[in-house]
Amino acid sequence: MATETTAAAGEGLATSPETAPGMPQLDFSTFGNQIFWLIVTLVVIYFILSRIALPRIAAVLAERQGTITNDLAKAEDLKKQAAEAEEAYEKALADARAEAQKIADQTREEIKGQVAEAQAKADAEIAAKTAESTKQIEEIRASALSNVEAVAKDTAAALVAALGVSANQGEIDKAVDDRIKG
C-alpha cells in the first residue's frame, strides 16, 4: 500500500510539481506550521471554554437542577398544605356534627323537662279540682242530711197535729232525733 501510494504520488510529482511526494503527513517542512497553529488553536479553545463556555453551561445546569429541586419542594409543600386543609375540613365537619348532636340532645332534654313540668302542673290542678269537688259533695251530703232531719221533724209535727194530739215541739224533735240515731 505504502509503496503504491509512493509510486502514485511520485508519478503525480513527475507530472505536476505541486503534488507533495509520498504522504503529505510525512512532509516535515510543514510540521512547524501545523504545530504552531495547533497550539494557537488549543490555547484559544481553552480560554473560550474555561472563561466563557464551561462556567456558563455549569451555571445553566445548576440553575436547572435548582429549579427542579425547588419545584419538587414546592409541590411537596403544596401537597402537605392540601392534606392539612383536608384534615382541618374533616375536623370542622366532625365538630359541627358533634355540635349538632349536642344541640339536639339539649333540646330533647329541655322539651322533656317542659313536658314533665306541664304534666306535673296539670296533675296538681286535677288533684286540686278533685279535692274541691269532693269537699263540695261532702257539703252537699251534709246539708242534705240536715234537711232530711228538718223535714222529718216538720212531717212528724204535722202528723202529730193531724192526729189531734197536742204535743210540744221539743218532744217531737227529741223523738225524731232518737229515731234517726237509732
Binding site: T5, A8, A9, E11, G12, T15, E18, T19, A20, G22, M23, P24, Q25, D27, T30, N33, Q34
Partner: peptide, 17 residues
C-alpha cells in the same frame, strides 16, 4: 490526472498543506 486520461488516483493530495 483527468487531462492525462485514464484512472489516476491522488487520494493523498487532500492532505497537502
Amino acid at each position: 490526472g483527468a487531462e492525462e486520461g485514464g484512472l489516476v488516483f491522488h487520494p493523498m493530495d487532500q492532505f497537502i498543506v
